[in-house]
């Protein structure tokens, strides 16, 4: 961990806006931001670990515990909402036996409700590992995830 985190920090050493960049890279590397990584960042940037946590915990996409292998963001913004996002969410929750914010028992998916993926022309939408799927119906949403299982 030490070497990997220090390497990430060195990569951003010359950036002016480094903290968020470092946290992103750490999260990409480990799947989350481990406590030990925060301590190393604090040491290297001459900050207190609490100061880093204070910043990191503010942002909704930083996580501090390991999550599922795939991240599923289901949009329930106004547009997706009036276009039926609730039905999609309900269907996904039933199908995968989770509520939004949780990870499936097999550790495969973490579902999150978000509000605004910026693709309102295709509402309702969801994003799986950064890839966007639009014009969803409940069936199609389930089908996309099942297909991705294979």
């Amino acid at each position: 961990m030490e070497d990997k985190v220090v390497e990430i920090i060195e990569k951003h050493r010359k950036d002016d806006a480094k903290l968020l960049a470092i946290l992103h890279d750490v999260q990409d590397k480990f799947g989350y931001i481990p406590e030990d990584a925060i301590k190393i960042i604090a040491r290297e940037l001459k900050m207190k670990k609490g100061e880093i946590y204070d910043t990191a915990s503010f942002y909704s996409f930083f996580r501090f515990k390991p999550e599922g292998r795939h991240e599923v963001l289901v949009c329930d913004c106004i547009v997706c909402h009036i276009k039926g996002a609730e039905d999609i969410i309900k269907r996904l929750e039933d199908e995968f036996k989770v509520t939004m914010g949780e990870t499936t028992k097999d550790g495969k998916y973490t579902f999150k409700m978000v509000e605004g993926l910026g693709h309102c022309e295709e509402s309702p939408v969801m994003m799986v590992d950064g890839k966007l799927y639009g014009n969803l119906t409940p069936d199609r949403a389930v089908e996309i995830l099942r297909r991705c299982e294979q």
């Binding site: 207190k48 609490g50 204070d54 915990s57």
Partner: peptide, 25 residues
């Protein structure tokens, strides 16, 4: 800089360090 904020909005709360015991923070 031991006491800091965790989360945001209504979930904002006071924690020590990385939500640790005071001493560890």
């Amino acid at each position: 800089h031991v006491l800091v904020r965790e989360n945001r909005g209504m979930n904002t709360r006071i924690v020590a360090g990385i939500n640790e015991r005071l001493k560890d923070a």
